[in-house]
Amino acid sequence: MIQAKICGVRTPDAIAAAVAGGARAIGLVFFPASPRAVDPSFAAELARQVPTGVQVIGLFVDPQNDDLERIVGQVPLDMVQLHGSETPERVADVKSRFGLPVMKAIAIGDAADLERARSFELVADRLLFDAKAPAGVSSLPGGNGLAFDWTLLAGQRWSRPWMLAGGLNPDNVAAAVRASGAQAVDVSSGVEDRPGHKSPAKISAFLAALRSL
Rank of each mutant, 00 (worst) to 15 (best):
residue 116 R to Y: 11
residue 97 R to D: 06
residue 107 A to F: 06
residue 64 Q to Y: 08
residue 26 I to D: 00
residue 60 F to Y: 12
residue 96 S to M: 06
residue 136 G to K: 01
residue 72 V to Q: 04
residue 81 Q to P: 08
residue 129 F to P: 14
residue 64 Q to P: 12
residue 61 V to H: 02
residue 101 P to R: 06
residue 27 G to T: 12
residue 70 R to Y: 08
residue 58 G to Q: 07
residue 115 E to M: 13
residue 133 A to T: 13
residue 54 V to A: 03
residue 72 V to T: 14
residue 49 Q to G: 13
residue 36 R to T: 03
residue 133 A to C: 13
residue 110 D to L: 11
residue 127 L to E: 10
residue 54 V to H: 00
residue 36 R to G: 07
residue 36 R to Q: 03
residue 73 G to H: 03
residue 91 V to G: 01
residue 43 A to D: 01
residue 39 D to A: 06
residue 130 D to V: 06
residue 35 P to S: 09
residue 124 A to K: 05
residue 41 S to L: 14
residue 111 A to C: 04
residue 58 G to S: 10
residue 116 R to N: 15
residue 136 G to A: 00
residue 27 G to N: 02
residue 113 D to C: 05
residue 34 S to A: 14
residue 121 E to I: 06
residue 86 E to R: 04
residue 114 L to H: 02
residue 109 G to R: 11
residue 44 A to G: 08
residue 34 S to Y: 04
residue 47 A to H: 08
residue 38 V to T: 12
residue 28 L to S: 06
residue 65 N to I: 11
residue 80 V to N: 02
residue 28 L to T: 02
residue 77 L to V: 06
residue 65 N to L: 14
residue 103 M to F: 04
residue 101 P to F: 15
residue 43 A to P: 06
residue 67 D to P: 05
residue 72 V to P: 02
residue 43 A to S: 06
residue 120 F to A: 08
